[in-house]
């Protein structure tokens, strides 16, 4: 993972609360089997609206998203983080993040910075009054700066350390493989194993077929 200590880029004001991950990336875009190439899917339903903030020239190249409370709620899809990153975002600022989204961000080097709602409002005012204003997100000082506005943000110490060091979680965990093996040796015998597989007796499953509705049209 790339190290992250400070980033400066155009700030994008997203005046919405409860931006769930179905809005960040609708389910129809989740069928790909790659980790990249999701930039077109970001906010797909809203991108068709010319008034949407990312469709305005000043914000199009944005890389710091400033959003309302409860960002990233709903589905666990990490594709939401990939789509934000693929578009070019490096940081999201919000009053409150959904837990799974915040975890996913940390794993992928996207900073989810928690900012007080009144400070979000200050940033929105600056970014709306002067579209294209850059925001500096400083992970060392735990501060976001835009023009003369300086606001503090919160991020948990462990995530901050991992981001600044660019560390890979799996590598860190595997340093303790001996302890994992030791733990496994104590596992009670009633705890389930999926293999060898146990089943109910096999039964044939017959495929359902389309039925006619309203007397004429077959359902797609």
């Amino acid at each position: 993972m790339e190290k992250f200590s400070q980033h400066t880029g155009v700030g994008v004001p997203l005046r919405r609360s409860n931006v769930d991950t179905d809005q960040i990336i609708p389910a129809v875009y989740l069928k790909r089997v790659t980790r990249t190439g999701f930039e077109d899917a970001l906010f797909a339903a809203w991108r068709g609206d010319p008034e949407f903030v990312l469709n305005q020239d000043a914000y199009r190249s944005g890389s710091v998203l400033v959003a309302g409370p409860d960002f990233g709620t709903g589905s666990s899809r990490e594709h939401a983080v990939w789509a934000l990153k693929d578009y070019g975002f490096r940081a999201v600022l919000s009053t409150r993040f959904a837990d799974i989204f915040r975890g996913n961000s940390g794993k992928q080097g996207l900073l989810a910075a928690q900012v007080a709602q009144e400070d979000i409002e200050l940033l929105w005012k600056v970014l709306e009054a002067r579209p294209g204003t850059e925001v500096t997100v400083d992970l060392v000082a735990k501060q976001a700066r835009a023009d003369d506005v300086v606001v503090p943000f919160e991020v948990d110490d462990y995530t901050r350390w991992r981001l600044m060091e660019g560390l890979d979680d799996i590598g860190l965990t595997l340093k303790h493989e001996g302890e994992i093996t030791e733990f496994e040796a104590t596992r009670a015998s009633w705890r389930p194993l999926t293999l060898p597989a146990k089943h109910l007796p096999p039964v044939e499953v017959v495929a359902a077929r389309p039925v006619l509705r309203h007397g004429d049209d077959a359902l797609a």
Binding site: S76, R77, E78, H79, V81, I100, G103, N104, K107, Q108, D156, Y158, D169, I170, L172, T173, L174, E177, I180, E184
Partner: peptide, 20 residues
Amino acid sequence: FGIGTSEVEHVLATQTLPLA
């Protein structure tokens, strides 16, 4: 609890998760 794809990979590889 639900996890993201990076955590899915983590569990596949280690059968553990670092969690606060």
